[in-house]
Nucleic acid binder design. Structure first.
Lengths: 341, 341
DNA sequence: GTTAGCACTCCAAGGAAACGAGTGCTAAAA
DNA sequence: TTTTAGCACTCGTTTCCTTGGAGTGCTAAC
């Protein structure tokens, strides 16, 4: 266990390093307010902290930098509640001033405020669809055999898909199919649509819809709707401001991530409620092994449906990010929930 | 006017520089096949070409690099038709092998193939909506007063929007409104929707829809649908492979562009048919003043509806990019047109 | 237990020297 | 008259060495 003094020193090192990104020396720590010891004392303690694995030394005769274990301890035990600054309040003011009129816009907006306030890259996973329920289904014919299917969920998400109407199927058959499905499936969770059609409705559909055998493929296409979850990112270029990403290769591997939305979803998805902090290689993906990811889930009417988060270097301003994220996630939930009451 | 020999030398310099990104010296040029002169002769000619503004010298005792004017001449007069390599054909094979079932997917797919084949950043502007026509309009109620409006165009594009139903308006009134609008507006170009409602339908709507005065706002929201044109980008990180973007500041200004989709639309939009090449500051935007942008429009049933293009450094492999782009744009048109016949 | 002092380490910044790619000019060759 | 070989010169790049300074660990004194 760490002594009070050791804790204070560890805190001082991290607090300084977060800002400077340079190894912190004993002299610097001893001058910091809240630490009343001489450089020599600090040196002894820092050597101990290094032995215990909380600090690291890039090379002899350099200062110390926090190790991953050090950050973890800092986040778990040394963090102080974040104090909002005047600038923060101004930014939040803008947040409230802006009018938004659909979920996607709200997401983009929250995302940009968050990345602006934290100065890191941020992301929001769009509302999880597997848990939302079917509200309406439509098939709109476009030309001859081309049509577009539209699937609306109770969270207001609209999924569209081009489909080809098989030869020999009349418009009225399609209409009938759609009516039946709407009647039977409204309120059913998206994830269960396919199973229900297959096991409970196939007989009925066969009876009431002419040429139904020709329509099974089309129906599959519509309902397969794996409804890829969309990832929205913002502030991608802000990681370029961080000295640790000046290296082109390193930054390329991060930016490549952003284009691979499926990977992003895996990386960020999290069912747990509340704020979660994953530091360094606590993240599974190698490309982010020297990054930290802080996530929070947001809710629609009390149900957690998506994730909002921040990606930055391990040398991250945890206090600030956690504070801002907590607030925005909560507020974002409140905002979009209002549309669904 | 340039002599044959000068043209050949200019060609050789650019052809080399495109690959090496290093200033090209007289010796290198004289050794290139197709140029049968000694280094001294080349030196004299290069000095002339520099005087005429086709070449530049970073400093005395360095080789020459092409100027913007040089690139322009190269593109206009020296380009040879692109020869497809085996690798290209393999990539195209993949292109055909993949099954796609809606426009968005086709766009993403074409985009990734294009950026993979050219090794530059590429983009596709989604089908222009202002010219497409209304196919269907729907309003799906979600909860109490929340609803989502859905607007389908004849190109299969679906635009959705959250709306708030004013107090005191019944569902049946909404239904009536939707029916009337569908009846009257199907086939009308999206750009004209609002004007027609305002000038030709307002009397009729007032007569047939109860509480119509309360619904004007809602109607405006639905039809305002400025239908932001979506920009899809791919291969963003590929510009990091180009030595001219090793500079973090430079690359940041480019990447910032990508996040500003409205700017991108302005930058890339182009009504002209066929392949267009804009070199260096022929582009209005300062951030891309040392980039070249090559665009081609794609068609749905013969109508140009969108743009597909490539962004790279002015030192770009123009021959290859133009060849690939021409082919892919044509092919992409054919593919998506097939869905609308 | 804490602190001042001191020798030691090692990175970073700066500068001289060597290197080499490429030029322009001149004079000879074609 | 045009082309080419030869040569002195320029200038950016690389390499190596020196110097400065920040920071350490250890020892001895407080």
């Amino acid at each position: 266990m760490l002594t009070e003094r050791q804790k204070r020193i560890l805190w001082a090192v991290i607090d300084d390093y977060i800002v400077s990104a340079e190894p912190v020396g004993s002299r610097t720590v001893s001058k910091k307010k809240g630490v009343g010891f001489s450089a020599a004392t600090i040196r002894n303690e820092m050597a101990d902290l290094e032995e215990m694995g909380f600090l690291e030394q890039p090379h002899t005769s350099a200062g110390r930098i926090p190790s991953q274990k050090g950050y973890r301890f800092y986040v778990d035990h040394l963090l102080q509640p974040y104090m909002w600054s005047k600038d923060d309040l101004m930014a939040l003011h803008d947040f409230y001033a802006m009018k938004v009129d659909h979920v996607e816009q709200a997401i983009k907006h929250a995302n940009s405020i968050l990345s602006q306030m934290t100065n890191y890259m941020t992301f929001i996973l769009g509302p999880r669809l597997s848990e939302s329920k079917l509200k309406a289904l439509q098939i709109v014919p476009l030309h001859d055999r081309a049509a577009v299917s539209i699937l609306v969920t109770d969270t207001g998400y609209v999924h569209r898909q081009h489909v080809i109407v098989p030869e020999g199927v009349s418009l009225s058959a399609i209409e009938r199919l759609v009516n039946l499905l709407n009647y039977r499936l409204t309120g059913v969770p998206i994830a269960k649509l396919k199973a229900i059609v297959k096991h409970e409705l196939s007989e009925e559909l066969k009876r009431h819809v002419e040429h139904f055998d020709k329509l099974t493929d089309l129906l599959d296409t519509i309902l397969k709707a794996e409804l890829e979850e969309r990832v929205y990112t913002s502030g991608t270029t802000r990681i370029l401001d961080q000295p640790e990403f000046r290296d082109v290769e390193k930054m390329k591997s991060i930016l490549d991530l952003v284009e691979e939305s499926t990977v992003l979803v895996q990386l960020f998805n999290s069912d747990k409620e509340g704020v979660q902090v994953r530091i360094g290689d606590e993240n599974d993906l190698e490309a982010v092994n020297d990054c930290s990811i802080i996530t929070a889930s947001y809710m629609i009417n009390g149900e957690p449906v998506g994730t909002i988060g921040v990606l930055g270097p391990t040398r991250m301003n945890y206090g600030r990010v956690i504070g801002v994220l907590e607030f925005l996630a909560h507020d974002f939930s409140r905002r979009i929930s209002a549309w669904f009451e």
